[in-house]
Amino acid sequence: MKPTNEDYKNIPGWGIDADPENEPTYPIKNYTGDDHNRIHYERSPQQPLTVEILLSTERPGPTAVFGTSVPPTGLSGTIRRYAFRNSEDRYRHWIPLILADRINVFEGLIDDIRTGHLPNLFKERGLGMEWKHNRIAVLTKVAFAALAGAALMISVKRKK
């Protein structure tokens, strides 16, 4: 909202050097002055909150529309809820989210097994493509892994 008290306009020289041409955001932004109305624009109707949505603390409420994909659940969901108690400015917002993402991968695997779907990791990782088009790199990696494995075995045996 525009300030109601416009006394600042009496400050000597107020506005004297204002230059509307000095607008480095053009043409990406077509400056209209609407920014000064802040969030008081006409809004679309509110989408009903049918699933749990985590909200940024940097705004007063949900946006008129939002996605409803995979609501938070399980341990990862608990961590995500904690993350959303902190603003986007804080590491304690983003680091827990990354942690939750990693935990979520295990939750996904457990879910798969529980529902009797053994994930085909070779296929999900598209490794067939790697084998088809990048065979030398795959073989090198496998050879390195085998060598490292053998070295480990030998060192373990020696220690015994």
């Binding site: 209209t32 609407d34 624009y41 679309s44 909200l55 946006t63 008129a64 939002f66």
Partner: peptide, 19 residues
């Protein structure tokens, strides 16, 4: 409809991401 969209900043809409 938001001020950002109205000024052509469709990649910065204020009514599409509550998160």
């Amino acid at each position: 409809k938001c001020n950002f969209c109205k000024q052509g900043l469709y990649g910065n809409c204020h009514e599409s991401n509550p998160m």
